[in-house]
Amino acid sequence: MERAVEPAAGRSEGSSELPASRAMSPKERRAAIALEVQQRGHATVAELGRRFALSEVTIRHDLDCLARAGLVRRSRGGAEAVSRARQVASFDMRQLQNLEEKRAIAKAAVELINSGDIIFLDAGTTVLEVARALPPKLLDGGLTVVTRSAVIAYELRRWPRTRLVVLGGVYVHDFDDFVGEQVEMALRGMRVNTLFIGTDGLSLERGVTTDNVLESSLYRLMARCADQVVVVSDSSKIGRDQFQSILALDEIQALITDDNAPQEFIEALRARGLRVVVVPVRAQGGPVVPIPANAAE
């Protein structure tokens, strides 16, 4: 098994290097490197070597693996982010962000689902974790799942007792969703018990917001199909106000988020009659992160 290089002796405690990287698996280490490049926009091999206390040979190998997976773009002497500042990161990159929070939120979300329910799992990395958290007793219990996410459909393909309805249309790779007139036509006349959606932003003034203008008109159609709308979102989205408003707060019934959410925001939602579920996120040494197979070589 590949091992990271031990940090040199004599480093100061205030160093930005991460000696703990030597305890990470290659998959976990590459996830951390990918996020570092995404946050910086660009990083050299030397900078990443100092940051993670790794040899330049190891860094170059990791960057090559990440580039093959489409998570970074190799440049002279280093790598650059695949999306620029203020642009939406790729779907694979977003899967790496706040994963512990997303998994805790997902576990709470499945508690709202009963055997035999008809649920709509919209696209997005948090909703993907909801799909992954569905227990066998639900998947074997006559559940119907509607989705416009290719990744969620792929996750649920192995459960023949779950009726899977995939809404097709024009596929948008960066968001892993289908959009367009075909989706809108399929939504007309449909009825589900619960719609689970993620969000790019959530504010008291404008409700649920997104930067994805291609799909913004779909959300009110989806909401009209549902007995209840549940927003699943980690606390980093709270207070963000993105380009397009997709649902007002009075169009959703519940929010599931983590315990880093501002208390005043939670209280304001509850005062408006929304159900708010706050899940604790236990601090750990580092999350287990999913990396595409071709980045784990």
Rank of each mutant, 00 (worst) to 15 (best):
V281F: 00
A4R: 11
E184M: 14
G169I: 11
L66T: 05
W159H: 06
G285K: 07
V277T: 00
A293Q: 13
Q182G: 13
R29M: 13
V289E: 08
D227S: 10
R74P: 02
S245N: 09
D241C: 03
F91C: 04
E36C: 08
E111V: 11
A153V: 14
E181H: 04
Q87L: 11
N212I: 15
R84E: 10
S236L: 06
K102G: 06
R132E: 00
L187G: 00
V288G: 07
V278E: 09
R103D: 03
G70S: 12
D92K: 15
F175D: 12
R50K: 15
R220K: 06
V45Y: 01
G49A: 07
A106E: 04
G142N: 01
G70K: 09
D62I: 10
L214M: 02
D64Q: 14
A131T: 05
P287K: 05
G41F: 03
V213A: 10
P280D: 07
G286H: 09
L187T: 05
V170S: 15
R272P: 03
I118V: 10
K27E: 05
A153L: 13
T162D: 13
F120D: 04
V82Y: 06
Q97C: 06
R272D: 15
Q284H: 15
E297I: 03
L128V: 04
I246E: 05
V45M: 08
L66R: 05
I113K: 01
L167R: 04
L112T: 05
V110Q: 01
V281M: 06
V127L: 14
L255S: 01
R30M: 08
E13K: 14
L128F: 06
L214Y: 01
Y219R: 04
E297T: 03
A4W: 06
V170L: 10
Q182F: 00
D174F: 08
D62W: 01
A106F: 02
V213T: 08
V277F: 03
A46W: 04
G78P: 07
A8V: 08
A81Q: 04
G201C: 03
G14K: 12
A226L: 14
P262F: 09
E6I: 09
F120M: 11
L139D: 03
M190W: 12
R282Q: 12
D117L: 12
A268I: 11
A104H: 08
R220N: 06
E17T: 13
D177V: 12
T162N: 13
V5D: 07
L218P: 11
S55V: 11
P135K: 09
L195C: 00
I105A: 05
A67N: 14
A20R: 10
S25V: 07
L164H: 02
I256D: 00
G70I: 08
F243T: 11
Q228R: 13
D211H: 11
T209I: 05
V213L: 14
L249E: 10
V208F: 13
Q95P: 09
R270P: 06
A108H: 08
S16Q: 11
A131N: 04
F52M: 02
I105Y: 00
V278I: 15
Q97T: 10
A34E: 06
G49P: 01
